[in-house]
């Protein structure tokens, strides 16, 4: 689904962000993209979403190659960024979900159905500034899913969420995985989602440090500025949360 080949990215100011990154992601997998702050996670996500053009190398997403087909890449990917306030342009949850779509009965019904799944219906007509942080994140995620993307890119989706919010977000990730959506989830903390991950990619100062199934990678993450999950450090392997089923 996604192939990254010898990717370099240097910001216009001359600051290098990614250095010869290569990796491959199969369709329907849930990929954990982790690394310390400044390791290049958000930059790689923006490149995968077709929002930046690689300085050198290429990214192929669902057959569309960037550089060259950045707009086509953007059509198949949806990136949900960390700051929900910047992504919400609608005045209410309803208006934000229907932003950029023809307001047909079918579209409204689909948006309402998604809002019901995300427990957003009570906030359907509420002004967005009155929503909690977690609800705003869910509106952004719902808006992304309404576009029927082939690839969903979530930048730090767990940051700022309380425990119930994290559990809800985990449930949404599981649901999307069950329907075969390819997901890339960035985080600097493995604890909240490692048990859901099929493939773990670790970045370290712009370079690909590790890439593989979590069991094969977790023993080496600490040296790249990432803390292994507690259960792993305690020798109990990767454990699912509470009574949640994988």
């Amino acid at each position: 689904m996604i192939t990254v080949t010898d990717l370099d990215y240097v910001y216009p100011g001359g600051q290098g962000a990614l250095d010869r990154v290569s990796l491959s992601i199969r369709p329907g997998t849930l990929v954990g993209l982790v690394g310390a702050n400044g390791s290049g996670k958000s930059t790689l996500m923006a490149l995968m979403a077709g929002l930046y053009t690689p300085t050198s190398g290429s990214i192929t997403v669902d057959g569309c190659v960037n550089p060259g087909e950045g707009r086509a890449v953007r059509a198949v990917c949806r990136l949900v960024m960390q700051d929900a306030d910047l992504q919400m342009l609608g005045a209410t949850a309803e208006e934000d979900l229907l932003l950029g779509r023809a307001r047909t009965d079918a579209t409204v019904a689909r948006a309402r159905e998604l809002a019901r799944r995300f427990s957003l219906l009570p906030a359907w007509e509420r002004p967005v500034q009155t929503l909690s942080w977690g609800m705003k994140r869910k509106v952004c995620l719902a808006a992304a899913l309404l576009d029927d993307p082939r690839v969903l890119l979530l930048d730090e989706p767990f940051s700022g969420l309380d425990y119930p919010g994290m559990r809800e977000m985990r449930g949404l990730l599981r649901e999307s995985r069950a329907v075969g959506l390819t997901q890339v989830v960035s985080s600097h903390d493995l604890e909240c989602f490692i048990d859901l991950v099929d493939q773990l990619v670790v970045l370290d100062t712009g370079r690909l440090a590790l890439d593989g199934p979590p069991d094969a990678v977790l023993n080496h993450v600490r040296s790249h500025g990432v803390r292994p999950p507690c259960s792993w450090s305690a020798g109990q392997g990767v454990r699912s949360w509470d009574e949640e089923s994988l």
Binding site: A46, L51, R74, D83, L86, Q87, L99, G100, A102, D147
Partner: peptide, 23 residues
């Protein structure tokens, strides 16, 4: 914030005429 919002607008596909058709 402006830079991030620009990315968010493009990321949501709101940077084209089809997204701003009056309804």
């Amino acid at each position: 914030k402006t830079w991030n919002q620009t990315l968010a607008v493009a990321g949501r596909g709101l940077d084209g005429p089809q997204a701003w058709e009056p309804d």
